[in-house]
């Protein structure tokens, strides 16, 4: 399975997420040291009720914890948006 899809499924399962999107942006970083080591640059959007009442730092720590195995291997860099369903509804284009 494609590592992007694997990361997406892991996040969806771990957070019982109502929406997950992982984009592989590695092609923007060709020649970058992390890419040479085989790690990809990813961007993730995770929408979950589990983020309710949590600070951004706490939310992102939860994501990093779920992806601990991948960090430093498959993932060199991960930029993320961690939203509650209410925040997601607000931010979504009408």
């Amino acid at each position: 399975m494609d590592r992007r899809v694997r990361i997406e499924e892991k996040l969806r399962e771990s957070f019982a997420a109502s929406y997950v999107l992982v984009v592989d942006e590695s092609h923007h970083h060709v020649g970058h040291s992390g890419v040479r080591d085989g790690g990809g640059h990813f961007r993730a959007v995770v929408v979950s009720e589990r983020f309710e009442g949590k600070l951004l730092v706490e939310r992102q720590r939860l994501v990093y914890a779920v992806l601990a195995e991948e960090m430093g291997n498959d993932i060199h860099a991960l930029s993320m948006q961690t939203l509650t369903p209410a925040q997601w509804a607000e931010q979504r284009p009408q």
């Binding site: 951004l56 992102q60 960090m71």
Partner: peptide
């Protein structure tokens, strides 16, 4: 900091976050 990536910003000794935050 239990934070797996760089950059990391600290303000008055407290961890603030990485680039997204």
């Amino acid at each position: 900091s239990s934070w797996p990536t760089i950059p990391q910003l600290y303000l008055r000794g407290e961890f603030v976050g990485g680039c997204d935050i």
